[in-house]
Design a protein around this nucleic acid. Sequence first.
RNA 1: GCCUACGUAGCUCAGUAGGUAGAGCACUUCCUUGGUAAGGAAGAGGUCACCGGUUCAAAUCCGGUCGUAGGCUCCA
Length: 641
Amino acid sequence: MSEISDLPIEVTEAPAGEPVLQPSDLVGDVTFGSNAVPEGESRAQRLHRIRHSTAHLMAEAVVSLFPTAKVATGPSIEHGFYYDFDLPRTLTPEDLEEIERRMKKVAKRGMPFQKATMPIAQARELFEKAGQSYKVEVIDTIQEKQNPTEVTLYRQGAFVDLCAGPHVSSTSRLKHTKLTKVAGAYWRGDSNRPMLQRIYGTAWETQEDLDAYLQFLEEAKKRNHKRLGEELDLFHFHKESPGAAFWTPRGFTVVQSLQKYWRELGDRRGYQEIWNPLLYKKDLYVRSGHYEHYKDDMFIIHQEDTEYCLKPMNCPDTFLYYTSKRRSFRELPLRIAEGGILHRNELAGALNGLFRVRQFMQDDAHIFITEAQVQSEIAEVLDIVKEVYSLFGLSYEFTLSTRPEKFMGEPAVWDQAEADLRAALDGGGTVYAVDEGGGAFYGPKIDIKVNDCLGRKWQCATVQLDFQQPINFDMGYTASDNSRQRPIVIHRAVFGTFERFMGVLLEHTAGVLPTWMSPVQAVVVPISDKSTDYAFEVLAKLKAAGLRAEVDDRNEKMNLKIREAELRKTPYMIVVGEREAELGTCSVRTYKDGPRGAFEVSAIVAEIADKVKTREFDVKITPLRSFDNEDEAPVETESEY
RNA sequence: GCCUACGUAGCUCAGUAGGUAGAGCACUUCCUUGGUAAGGAAGAGGUCACCGGUUCAAAUCCGGUCGUAGGCUCCA
């Protein structure tokens, strides 16, 4: 029956489970016609066609290896495809190799993809008879949602699948592919439904593209922030506190440089910082609604008869500050920052380096405003976002999320708020997407995502309007007419969390931090211990300028010291020998530009101090190529609004 | 939380017909005083994640726990 069933099967155990017919056994009287491929497709469309077809090719190989396999769904995704299977046993790495071998064989043989159309009822019967219960469920969903009279099937070789297409003309187009990983995936993404086995693969038009992509994955691995954190001695993780970063002296220096900037920025932009407790009786969160909606994500401590919570966010306790006294309209906008330590009990399997942690610190702030101040204050916050991300050469995108189906408050207030958000975005000339119905139940929001070196998007900044908490906390202010009014709250974070932002920044720069953030901004390297005294003289001048510098006076050769400073990505390496000591100069080498020759000590101290003061982004960014849009330039390093 | 894989020296890793552990880097000491990415020698360092089981014998086989990675789910 199977085109490839004559291949040697290297399965040692007999697959268990109910025997399942394959649709290919049942379509004898169905006529499959040719599968026309249109002219003038974009590259993205061609890749989609190839990847989706490769998913079918893989399913054919899996079914030939496991005759009792049930197939679920197999779409194309960015850079490749996956297909979900219900299999009699778990897959091993050897299985993947065997599946890939079989795929290659069929690709080489060049089996045509053919298309057939049939009434949906007939298709349902066919897949039912074949025992392909997942496909039957898919058909039922199609019936429910679209209610078409007919559906299409595609066939290549021994494999027939319910599919809307499109596909390539022949499996001979599917030669540049590699299976990358196997993972569990819930059927229909529902954690209450069976877990299937998902095989991921990547597929390309040419071998060159495939090779380039695999190389990209290698490069991305090198830029992984966990690896960089280890290499640059910035942070560690320990099982004694899973999901929480342990910052080293070097790493903490970097974080503090960020926080120092954050505080200066807040000061300049009219924010006041408060500092509140970490631990609260549960009453606070009952009042804010978190206890009801967010309890599973909170760390809860029982102390004698009282239940305490480690705070998962700053809002409720900031509101306690707001309501601690009578407020006047003259105080608004009242901008209150709090970078409290937060704990969220994230699922163990969701933890991911600095990107997803259980303990973190946000550059959080809550702004209390009148309805009339929405637009101007949002514009002000967006301006801060632009300032901050531009400082790091990060590209980003805005999304406006509007009123969801379930919402609190008056539709008219929502409409006005959304119009204000749009006006603020439009006013800044900002390009943004709209996620209709994607807002929080308490108010619309603007999400800001940054792009990392892997092309992944990370949500760091968020700006949210909140009409609900002012009610929960009975916030008010006295208006000019002496009436009592309700303020609106803006929740905003720009870095998001310092942890995640550090992770994104490290991957973005491949670990090369700008001078102003570097744990050691300059290392003075004496050529021999004859020059050590002079090296310390130079060091004193660097320190006097407020710079983070040290002398490498170990009994080692200069070459080794240079090498280690380079590996640590130290921005400035200042070499001094007897010659420099005599002339009062120093020999400068930078991480960015290499050896630069002799300088007056005072000149180079001034240069470094200036870069630190202006927070110059003196980092050469080598963006990793974007693979799916050849027409597009590589990811821009300059911010684009 | 679910699926799969993994857990050997501070780090990166080797160690399969079960016979009480190795390399490189880092670290310590000594020699070396060297002009822009690794000078040389010696030494020290591990209850093989933890707990239990099988066995004369377990890093190795089995079970459990914890942690990590990649997915899934979640992400006010």
